[in-house]
Design a protein around this nucleic acid. Structure first.
Lengths: 209, 209
DNA sequence: GCCGGTTTCTAGTAGAGACTAGAAAGCATT
DNA sequence: AATGCTTTCTAGTCTCTACTAGAAACCGGC
């Protein structure tokens, strides 16, 4: 590759990123059905045909947005867990992961939001191709709950698998109703969720399980 | 209306219902984007043009499916709450509503599932028209949580609005992962959710809020 | 100012989707 | 079997979509 080629490539990478950003925004705000190549091209001031220089198909573009979204969320949660040091309290780890995931889907911009909003609305081809990434993130959560259960911190009468899916469901649904302007910020949502999940809604003075 | 007209109308109503059923199934299983008039027509063994004798547009058809879904879920929850008699314990009411809602979205067939699956993926026009029904159902839940909070059964440090949205989010997301064949049935999912929401995941022997 | 490689545009194709007008078919009543 | 109403079909229109081939523009180095 020549000097020019290398510099050009850098510029091409920037354009590529702008396209991805626009696609993520449209996917997050309007959903897959309304995300047309033309809409994305308009957002980056291009003709729709030109996008095919950067991506070989719409599916490839969407898939990369989703992959980046999962990667971002996973990295955020993993980093938050790392901050707890070695061998943390399992319930504290769970709380941390809940807050970090809430922050990711509500406060980290379009990529994670595009991810959760379009989960399940995608054509089978895209959904299947993306499942492998989602799977790895799921494993992280499976590990958290398994650790909590194994150490006896988890109530014995609950199903860890169902808990994982219900918790992530509540958080993944949150972008549907969350509005950044009013009331609670993403971290507070996560803390509220963690409070409910870990200790329940029942007030101490009426306690009596 | 003549005799013939009345009998014919009954038959037309049956066809109308078959179309609605097919639309609900497609919406629930494949989502709005992949729900074409042609796909619905195929499912009821008709040509696509013929559907327009029964519904004036795709939007009108979709909207009616969503309306029926909300109505069904709301009726199921309301009935379950009625079964508790007058002046029930607020936390017991909450538990009952959670189980009933889970049963509705997971076990009552295509209409409620079509509803929650497509929530948020709909074109703005449909979403706005449907909001009024969703709103009324939301009010039912707002009432449940307000009653619990007012009587002191709810922890004072949680936001009732956020709780409502997180709880419904977890349940509405469940159709994305729930598979009827394996493991827990819809009621059990609801009970698991209620257990977590009301009393938390923490085991008694590690308790220490 | 020309060259080579990179990027974008022009101008299409082909297919699918929602929707429509008018013909045709059903069918109960007479 | 003729009538009148209801229901379905035929055969299209029009718009939007993803995608493509080849021309044009750009741009740094000579």
């Amino acid at each position: 590759m020549t000097h020019e080629a290398r510099r050009m490539t850098r510029k091409s990478d920037q354009t590529r990123r702008r396209i991805l950003d626009a696609a993520a925004a449209t996917l997050a705000n309007r959903g897959y059905a309304e995300t047309s190549i033309k809409a994305i091209a308009d957002a980056v001031d291009m003709k729709d045909g030109s996008l095919y220089y950067h991506f070989e198909s719409k599916d490839a573009l969407v898939l990369e947005v989703l992959r980046l979204g999962t990667t971002l969320a996973e990295a955020a949660v993993a980093e938050a867990l790392n901050g707890l040091g070695d061998d943390p309290d399992p319930m504290e780890a769970l709380r941390t992961a809940i807050v970090a995931h809430a922050s990711a889907v509500l406060g980290m911009g379009d990529y994670p939001r595009a991810n959760v909003r379009n989960f399940g609305q995608l054509p089978a081809a895209i959904a299947n191709a993306h499942m492998v990434h989602q799977q790895r993130y799921g494993d992280l959560w499976r590990g958290l709950l398994r650790a909590a259960a194994a150490s006896g911190h988890l109530r014995p009468d609950v199903d860890a698998g169902a808990m994982r899916l219900l918790i992530l469901g509540a958080l993944n649904w949150a972008p549907e109703w969350y509005r950044p302007d009013g009331g609670l910020d993403p971290d507070r949502i996560g803390e509220q969720m963690a409070a409910m999940v870990l200790d329940g809604l029942r007030s101490a003075r009426h306690e009596g399980r």
